[in-house]
């Protein structure tokens, strides 16, 4: 029953992917074989969208996990007002995606009155129009900002679960801070890093709102990912057939990644 529930939409998608189906043009129906596939594969936006999806995911993962580890180590130290600093740092994670995207677009990255433009002018630089010059980079920055707190919190939780005795024993054996991190802390973090990677992958593969309210995937296809490409097909061109093919592609991509991630996750589950 559960299986049917989850597989049915997939079969429907598969079926539509083989048909001519445009909501704006209902007279044109029928079986089209692989026509949609041929059409989609010749769409110049597709390759770029796949590449953007992968690039977005990869960059955000690298940025959040590396910065997250550093910040988690910092937060593991004793200092005044640590609890409040942690709470403050957590804020971006709870901000809804449409708010954070508009906030960055209008108040941070805007070339005239954005705060970053103000900073650049005050050190004598020419402010840059982020979304025109580097649309995908801008989106990577926004998404990294949203997910950094999650990485910090997960890694911090993991660091704090490391027993003090093991750290003490390593220190007795003369391990410096770097050796300590390399041989004691980092191996312990493996599980947290795997979990963070998996969760971020789940959410970042489907990033949509951030693109929708900022660059609308442009200029051209420069910041279009697969999610946004499919949205374009369905709700802007009403091309159900084309969207279904792209949807299948998104599922295949997700499954390839999921296969590797879930395997490592399942291994962790038993220990």
């Amino acid at each position: 029953m559960l299986l049917l529930w989850s597989v049915l939409p997939l079969i429907v998608t598969l079926w539509f992917s083989l048909r001519r189906y445009n909501l704006m043009n209902p007279s044109r129906t029928g079986f089209d074989g692989l026509g949609n596939y041929r059409y989609l594969l010749s769409d110049p936006g597709l390759g770029l969208a796949v590449w953007n999806t992968v690039l977005l995911l990869g960059s955000v993962l690298v940025i959040t996990i590396s910065l997250g580890t550093l910040i988690a180590i910092l937060l593991d130290q004793e200092f005044y007002g640590r609890g409040f600093a942690r709470v403050l740092m957590l804020a971006p994670f709870f901000v809804m995606p449409t708010v954070s995207a508009l906030l960055w677009k209008n108040m941070m990255m805007h070339p005239d009155n954005g705060f970053l433009a103000f900073l650049m002018r005050s050190v004598g630089l020419q402010p840059i129009d982020w979304f025109a010059v580097a649309p995908l980079t801008s989106i990577i920055i926004i998404v990294s900002w949203e997910w950094l707190p999650f990485a910090v919190l997960t890694l911090l939780t993991a660091i704090q679960s490391l027993d003090a005795e093991r750290k003490e024993a390593a220190r007795m054996d003369g391990a410096g801070p770097i050796a300590m991190f390399r041989y004691i802390v980092w191996p312990h973090l493996g599980r947290a890093v795997a979990a963070t990677t998996m969760i971020e992958t789940i959410f970042i593969l489907g990033i949509f709102a951030e693109i929708y309210v900022t660059s609308s995937g442009g200029p051209g296809f420069a910041s279009t990912n697969l999610s946004f490409l499919i949205y374009r097909y369905v709700l802007m061109e009403y091309d159900i057939g084309g969207a279904a093919v792209a949807g299948l592609l998104a599922i295949v991509l997700a499954n390839v990644l999921a296969f590797f991630l879930l395997r490592s996750f399942a291994r962790n589950l038993d220990t």
């Binding site: 997939l10 429907v12 998608t13 539509f16 999610s227 499919i230 159900i240 997700a254 499954n255 589950l269």
Partner: peptide, 21 residues
């Protein structure tokens, strides 16, 4: 079943946008 449920979350929502819509 638990792992399979998790794997359904891996699928971007947009993959089922067409049938749901």
């Amino acid at each position: 079943t638990l792992l399979w449920m998790l794997s359904t979350k891996m699928m971007p929502s947009v993959g089922v946008l067409v049938p749901v819509y």
